[in-house]
Write a protein that binds this DNA or RNA. Structure first.
Lengths: 225, 225
DNA sequence: GCCCCGATAATACAATTGTATTGTGCAGAA
DNA sequence: TTCTGCACAATACAATTGTATTATCGGGGC
């Protein structure tokens, strides 16, 4: 598979037409969503005719799946590499993720809410990696295979992915886009600061409030298990 | 404004047609996105004719703005109430948010990535509340008005909103939808557990790695400021 | 009684959009 | 050379969709 995202992107001019169309599709899908993007818009963005898009990919759905394939390919490589380095789970791994090309991250952000199977797979791998990390680091707190570990890992994956999915809103608040490679580490540091602070908060003054709130809620609403 | 979401939703049968259409629009927009939802689909979901939707709201964009108005109305009330109780920033406030009706949360989740101004406003209020909380609780760590406070608060808002935006993926991982009111507190507890654990991690063994990674990154890539 | 007005519905229409069909030129094999 | 396959493009077409128009009907004020 010819993924020009392996090395961070080359010039658009020396790409084959098929790759240029797929790159344009990535951006269009990321910007307008699976439904909002149009074949004509993609063709125009790629600088080719509508017929060529049809010729190379057959249908809009097939084009979307081709984009998904690129994403799952690139991210699987990133994630397995991070897992091998033991970097999964640690907030620094987010910096790892941020280092993939920004268009690909933007596409992933949209695909995660547009219901793409590839994006779901990426999320699952992210969550599975987080679960491994949590269970390995705090075996007593997050026993392997326990519901506690699974839930904490899922929440962790959702929260970390949230900084990607909501990168536009985040950019508006903090003044720069967290998906810009040059600013990637900055967001990771903010996450670390936040974890350090909230860790104190959650660990000290809230230990009893946890059980308190849990029992109170269960009593009031009756939602056991 | 007749928002039937104030009390958690009544029966659909005793709602006026206009309200029923807007409720159906909320769900359709949430499920298919701003572009994916169709006037005919909304009319069918509401059990009325297409002409009636047009008659009451004029255009699809106006209907979307009416949905936005409901969201901004309800969430502003929730947030100001939480702020008055000093609950903003504390992870327990997420439980507060989760207590709003699930369809409204699903709509917010979609609107946050579909580019609705109302959703952006809700996110901004969430981030502003988080910033107040962080600066008030750790004035030396997050000085009021500092970039550190703004960035940590933005990341916090994005991460917490992420559990809403990605509720579908989260549900697939943990076995239940975090937007179900009966399970709302469970997600909040998982967040607390995660904060407590990651707080240790971020606070202890990573203090020097922070500066390390930051300087290393700046040197390599040349992204100062 | 008459009228008018709002709720509701059915139909019509133009724009958009995915897809199919057809055409054109060129590079390389026979 | 001739032919064949392929990259690329232009056009056509049917389905979808937002919107405008017209019609029906029921109740309340003169």
């Amino acid at each position: 598979m010819d993924s020009e995202f392996d090395d961070g992107g080359r010039q658009a001019s020396d790409l084959t037409a098929r790759a240029r169309i797929r790159d344009a599709a990535l951006e269009q899908f990321a910007e307008h969503g699976a439904k909002g993007a149009t074949m004509r818009g993609i063709a125009a963005a790629a600088g080719v005719s509508l017929g060529l898009v049809q010729h190379h990919f057959g249908s809009k759905e097939a084009l979307r799946q081709a984009c998904d394939a690129v994403v799952v390919d690139v991210f699987r490589r990133r994630l397995t590499r991070a897992a091998a380095d033991g970097d999964l789970g640690e907030p620094g791994f987010m910096t790892q993720l941020y280092e993939t090309s920004a268009p690909l991250l933007r596409y992933l952000a949209r695909a995660l809410v547009d219901g793409s199977p590839a994006a779901a797979a990426v999320f699952d791998e992210l969550a599975a990696g987080a679960e491994d990390f949590l269970s390995a680091t705090w075996p007593e707190r997050f026993p392997p295979g326990s519901a506690k570990a699974r839930e904490a890992a899922g929440v962790m994956a959702a929260m970390h992915s949230g900084t990607i999915v909501l990168h536009g809103h985040l950019a508006r608040r903090i003044g720069f886009d967290p998906l810009e490679p040059a600013r990637a580490s900055r967001t990771g540091l903010a996450m670390l600061d936040l974890y350090a602070a909230m860790g104190e908060f959650a660990g000290s003054a809230t230990a009893e409030r946890i059980a308190e709130a849990a029992t109170a809620y269960d009593d009031a609403d009756g939602a056991p298990r």
